[in-house]
Design a protein around this nucleic acid. Structure first.
Length: 453
RNA sequence: GGCGCUGUCGUCUAGAGGCCUAGGACAGGUCCCUUUCAAGGACCAUACACGGGUUCGAAUCCCGUCAGCGCCA
């Protein structure tokens, strides 16, 4: 246990920004590493955007990443912790109290309806746990508006008041706030309170090298949930942006990361977001998942994105998932690869039309395959399927069965790529394979599988 | 414009004066494996921003320049 208290203070904008998620993650990692408290505070002062949905997005994202908080709204309409309320919109009287206190010091003055704070004109040294001692020469620092003409207190002020009222000991936040920190320190000092420790972490940059904004592709955490990424993989990737476990390791269990995470090991330079690397890490987690875990993931993901998958028989669905899983690495791909088997009215891709059904011999081969599978005695197995392919190839005087195999794949799935073919056929079963071959053959015979359509 | 931060392969990083003819990973390339696609294996290419110091010795320390980013106005 320790008396460290850190916080994540997002505003409900309708999405949980990937940079915000990373800030939350680093606060969480530090709290868990030292055994302190992690506080969630919602900075919902912008009434126009302050909706329940927007707040829920934050809770959902945090939970998805597994970042549990010790104090804050519990996400179910209640509160946990003694230092609330944890919504800024409910803290008006607290701000008013501190505003009065600040006014009593004589360090403020009215100016055109706004209340301004007299900034000290002396140098300020921010002792940052990541950036080191950063000196600001404030001789020309303008005074700070702390209450607008409309009476609303400004961000810097409420942020400071909240942090001191909530007993925050370490402020871990994006480096974009480093230059503002001297203002915050001035406010703490004016209120007669010792400022917290600061740790400014590097920013996450987009492809073009500027601060990732919500307009950038993949800037919302929800994007990865929708795309069927695994939260542990996203979390692992985010840890690697500005922090490194040291020697040649990257894919690490979160417990191991918690154990090793130190603020002093944080990088100082901004990091570009690399979607390809995240995709790779996701693949690592995808393959490492236990079967039961995968089954649970697939069930949940398909329920949301492919509700019709529920009508497949359990054995068919499980079989398909098994043969598909090894070829792909996200839920989105899983859903797309399931598509050809969710209906008997499946479509044929342009590649399949072009590569497989533009060949005049295809009709003959399809007939042969259909007859071969129809005539099969007993269960359809990998070996039986292979034999049929070989025989059809021989009958057509083809030197190798490859051509037949490719055509067969296109015929039963409509696509030129897919799961390993023989295991797929076995999963589908003889009846379905024969029916699909019949359908394709008949469409082909009536000239409906050409390139044009 | 002022102030601040940063600057190692395309990207994320290891590196805290000699272990560095700079290591790993992703991405890229070649090959192997493979009756598609993945996965896997082997190999290749690519970096200490630049210029000055300090030192026997610098990616590592200091200064300057340049560049990028951020904050404020």
């Amino acid at each position: 246990m320790s008396d460290v208290r850190v916080r994540f203070a997002p505003s409900p904008t309708g999405l949980l920004h990937i940079g915000g998620a990373r800030t939350a993650l680093f606060n969480w990692l530090y709290a868990r590493h030292v055994g302190g408290k992690f506080v969630l505070r919602v900075e919902d002062t912008d009434q126009s955007r302050n909706t329940q949905e927007a707040v829920d997005v934050i809770f959902r994202g945090m939970r998805w990443l597994g970042l549990d908080w010790d104090e804050g709204p519990d996400g179910k309409g209640g509160t946990q912790g003694e230092r609330g309320p944890y919504f800024q919109s409910q803290r008006g009287s607290i701000y008013a109290k501190h505003l009065e206190k600040l006014q009593a010091t004589g360090k403020t003055y009215e100016d055109g309806g706004a209340l301004k704070f007299k900034m000290p004109k002396t140098p300020c040294v921010v002792k940052d746990m990541v950036c080191g001692d950063v000196t600001f020469d404030r001789t020309v620092e303008p005074d700070l508006v702390i209450r607008r003409k409309d009476g609303s207190p400004v961000f810097h002020f409420v942020n400071v008041v909240d942090d001191l009222e909530m007993g925050i000991t370490h402020v871990i936040r994006g480096e974009d706030h480093l230059s503002n920190t001297q203002k915050h320190i001035a406010l703490y000092e004016a209120l007669g309170v010792t400022p917290p420790q600061y740790a400014h972490i590097p920013l996450i940059l987009n492809q073009s090298g500027s601060k990732m904004s919500k307009r950038d592709d993949g800037a919302a955490l929800g994007f990865y949930e929708d795309a069927g990424y695994l939260p542990a993989a996203v979390r692992n990737y985010l840890c690697l942006l500005g922090w490194s476990p040291g020697a040649n390791e990257e894919v690490l269990d979160i417990h191991e990361i918690v154990k090793r995470f130190e603020l002093k090991d944080l990088n100082r330079s901004n990091a570009r977001f690399d979607a390809a690397k995240l995709f790779w890490i996701n693949g690592e987690y995808w393959r490492a998942m236990a079967d039961s875990e995968f089954a649970e993931f697939a069930k949940t993901y398909l329920a949301k994105h492919r509700p019709t998958a529920a009508s497949l028989s359990e054995s068919l669905r499980d079989g398909l998932l098994r043969v598909i899983r090894e070829k792909i690495r996200t839920g989105k791909e899983l859903a797309e690869w399931m598509d050809p088997y969710l209906t008997e009215d499946y479509s044929y891709s342009p590649e399949a039309r072009k590569k497989q059904f533009s060949n005049p011999d295809a009709g003959k081969l399809l007939h042969g395959l259909e007859q071969g599978f129809a005539a099969l005695d007993g269960d359809l197995t990998d070996a039986a399927a292979e034999m049929i392919c070989k025989k059809v190839a021989e009958d057509a005087a083809l030197p190798k069965p490859a051509k037949v195999i490719h055509l067969l794949r296109a015929a039963v799935s409509g696509h030129t790529v897919g799961p390993s073919l023989f295991p797929l056929l076995t999963v589908l079963g003889k009846k379905t394979v024969v029916a699909r071959l019949g359908r394709t053959r008949s469409l082909f015979d009536s000239g409906k599988l050409g390139e044009a359509t």
